[in-house]
């Protein structure tokens, strides 16, 4: 398996808070790579650095053989990293279908002239955008709600829609920020199946998640952050037993 993403020595400070300190890791193609840690450990900061929302103070990312660190968010998406947000950020007043169609923006070309003239190439492209968007809604299992406003969908469906929208950008790496948050047990199980299917279809996944059952069940490897530092990495079974991880989650044993 070849490397898809490589982070080396990534640091970021916000005022007096050192959010990340020299974090390095690498993700191979076809992996589901978990990113866990207590609240405030720096997981979402790492996501935002990776996707170009913030710039790292130190360190860099290499993606698919190219450096990534100074790219703007839209260039990161173009390079092949798509993300979802911890606090769902759908285009709430647009329909589910339109949300996914917007995801196709980066892989399509039509400009003002094409839009106005509607030449055959543009018409073909539009038809392809809509077809692909419907396919993706079907893929995540919410095709029946294609024409409903995204903001009015049930919570679990909104999470799925965000995944469909991200997949519409044809990503090589799908970065999911707590996709199971707020889901019940059966929704989480369905999510797990979806993640496994996405991976089987060839997309690598980076997953931030608090639901340990999901993380331990679905991830090939897990990176644990605490106070912005990497404290452990490895297969879920090993990481679970690591004393530093237990300490980070449960505190120092009183009489150890």
């Amino acid at each position: 398996m070849s490397l898809l993403l490589e982070a080396s020595g990534v640091s970021r400070r916000f005022g007096g808070v050192q959010a990340l300190t020299g974090v390095s890791f690498s993700i191979s193609r076809g992996e589901i790579y978990g990113l866990i840690g207590p609240n405030g450990a720096g997981k979402t900061t790492l996501f935002n650095l990776l996707t170009g929302i913030y710039l790292p103070d130190e360190g860099s990312f290499g993606f698919d053989g190219h450096p990534l660190s100074r790219l703007k968010p839209h260039q990161v998406a173009e390079a092949g990293i798509a993300r979802t947000f911890q606090n769902i950020r759908l285009f709430a007043n647009l329909s589910a279908l339109e949300n996914v169609m917007i995801g196709r923006h980066v892989r399509t070309r039509a400009g003002v002239l094409g839009a106005v003239l509607r030449d055959s190439a543009t018409r073909r492209e539009e038809a392809a955008i809509e077809r692909r968007a419907l396919e993706l809604l079907e893929y995540v299992g919410i095709a029946a709600r294609a024409n409903e406003a995204a903001g009015g969908l049930p919570y679990g469906d909104q999470r799925r829609l965000e995944i469909a929208r991200a997949l519409a950008t044809d990503p090589k790496l799908l970065a999911l920020d707590e996709p199971a948050a707020g889901m019940n047990a059966s929704e989480t199980l369905a999510l797990r199946k979806l993640l496994e299917r996405i991976r089987a279809d060839g997309t690598t996944i980076l997953l931030i998640e608090h639901d340990m059952k999901l993380v331990m069940g679905v991830c090939d490897r897990v990176l644990v952050l605490d106070y912005g530092e990497r404290i452990a990495e490895g297969p879920p079974g090993e990481v679970q037993k690591d004393p530093r991880v237990i300490e980070a989650y449960l505190g120092v044993p009183a009489a150890a």
């Binding site: 839209h74 950020r89 647009l94 917007i102």
Partner: peptide, 27 residues
């Protein structure tokens, strides 16, 4: 015609949520 096109959708995305629009690859 502009409204119902790739460009029109990008405008809508920017109006709705600029951060999400950027993350979806819209310049």
């Amino acid at each position: 015609r502009l409204q119902d096109s790739r460009i029109g959708r990008a405008w809508e995305a920017v109006r709705e949520d600029e951060t999400a629009a950027r993350a979806m690859g819209i310049n």
